[in-house]
Structures are given as structure tokens and as C-alpha cells.
Amino acid sequence: MIVVTGASRGLGAAVVERLRADGEAVLGVSRQPAEESAGLRRCDVSRAEEVAALAGDLRREKHPVTGLVNAAGIASMNLALMMPAATARELVATNLLGTIYSCQQLVPLMVRQGGGAVVNFSTIAVALGLRGESVYAASKAGVEGFTRAFAREVSGLGVRVNCVAPGPVATDLLAGVPEEALEEVIARQVLPRAFAPEEVADLVAYLLSQRSQALSGLVLPVGGV
């Protein structure tokens, strides 16, 4: 089973769709699912106790977890000087701590299966240092640092950890981002265009698969920087 956080919408939903199309058993996790089902459960990854409860349920139900996609994330485009402290805290709690908590709780389930693969999500904003995304980028820079170090910590346990850092992708996260700002980002990419969620999902599926078994500890910027 592959667990995908942030599964209700955006890149998380695209990843779920792609993996299911590939025949994978997928458990989607969302803070606000439209409705809970066998394939979708509620969990706020920014709350360690909720992630621990999810992991406990999966352990007791003996689900063979072999993959984790940390797609849960929030964005707030704002100058750091203008950002309320509560918003900054929420960004770090969901984007960075949510990734850490999910790895802490779910990777041990992979260890029980003899290994697995983790895919985290960053953003091209980290590499580009975009104005108006300092706090968001900081939270994702943390994810990149965590990915590199955590990959080393668990490599001996048969677990690979990589990170995808997309440029602009047509999802809810882009709502409210000025068109000229998007164009500025796209112009700085090696491949100067926006990407479809399905393209990012392709990369995630690859990183989860045995085809990428030689890759771990990488941060892959979609679009190139």
C-alpha cells in the first residue's frame, strides 16, 4: 500500500489517480476529506498525534505500507514582513513538520515490509529565491534538507527517500498568484513552461517504483533550475 497525504486535491489527488491507474493500492490522507472511505482517511499531518493514530491504525490493520508520498502542503504568497505569525507557523507545521511526522510514523511500517520509498514535495521557489515566497520557501527548504539527511538515516533499512520540487503546476495552490509572477518564475526555468499535475505524478510514480531503485537523497526540480 502507498500512503499519499494531501490526497483530496492538487498534486496529491493527481498522484493518487496515477498510482491507482497503475494498479497500486493507495490510501489517501486528507485534512478535510469530502467523505472518509476505505481509500481516503482524515488526518491533519501537522498534528503529530493524528499521524501517530493513523500509523497505529495501519499497523493494527496490518496494511503492508511500501510507499509514502508527502503531498500535503499549504502556500501563502506574502512578504515575510507582512505575514502574520500564525500563518508562518501553519506553513511550517504543515509543510515541514507534517512531512517529518509522516516519515517518523509511516517509515517504520515500511521497515516491517523490508523497505520502501518516500517521495517528499518541495518547490522550485527554494532554488529560485522568489520574492513573496520566503516563508513558504523556508518551509520547503526544510523538507529538502530533511530529505537528504533522512535518506542517509534509513538507507540501511531498505528505504529510499527523494524529493520533487515542481515549478508552477495548475493546482489550487496557484490560486491568487499574479499572472506576471508566474511568468517570471517560468522564464527562469530550464524548461520554460507550466506543468500539468499528471507530469509531476509521473515522476512520483517513477520514484516510488523499482525502476528508480538506484536513487535516494535527491531533490528533483521539475522544469529545471
Binding site: 499497523r59 493494527r60 517518523q104 517504520p108 521497515v111 516491517r112 538515516e153 540501511g156 533499512l157
Partner: peptide, 27 residues
Amino acid sequence: VDSMGLVQVCVALEDAAEGAGLRFDWT
């Protein structure tokens, strides 16, 4: 054991605890 072996020890302890209706927090 190395740190990887330690994780295996902790996973086994967690499983044993759960089997006995207990919990073990290894952080």
C-alpha cells in the same frame, strides 16, 4: 548494533508492546 539495527529493535518492541495491549514510544 548500529542505528539501523536499533530501529529494528524498536520496531520489534513496538510490535511486542502492541501485542500485549501496551504502547512503546521510542522517540
